[in-house]
Amino acid sequence: MARLLDVIREDLELTGTKEGCGEGECGACSVILNGKLVNSCLVPAVQAEGAELRTIEGVASDEQLHSVQESFLHCGGAQCGICTPGMVMAAVDLLKRCPHPDEAQIRDGLAGNLCRCTGYGKIVDSVAQAAERAIQVAEESRS
């Protein structure tokens, strides 16, 4: 039962998606499959056939970073960086479901992504800032 993670990393050679545990705990392998956040290490590849897949490589558009990536840079949300692709995916997913999250909602949205470096504070800040940026962008485009 090939794992979606192996298909992504080996067949598609998209190595931005990481394997931290292979047991569904760490979230380093998070991707968005048919609009839903999943741990690609737990998804049998057959179940992803024909599905729409978004990995970290598809978050920035060309040279333009996604607002979540931008704020991870500015707030210090990435340290060693190994959890970062998964964190970014979880944050992108959260902000889609819940564009104005409070701190508790952010923590809940990221609870499946373990980070050993940051203690989560700066990641929470990053997501909050990304939400703010999105609001600003929306307001600017309206006015």
């Binding site: 998606t17 970073l65 991870f72 840079l73 990435a78």
Partner: peptide, 20 residues
């Protein structure tokens, strides 16, 4: 801003297991 930050937030940073 962290020097290698951009490579990390985009997933471009190369860790050992990413090398074949």
């Amino acid at each position: 801003i962290r020097k290698e930050g951009r490579a990390k937030v985009t997933g471009e940073a190369q860790y050992t297991d990413d090398v074949r």
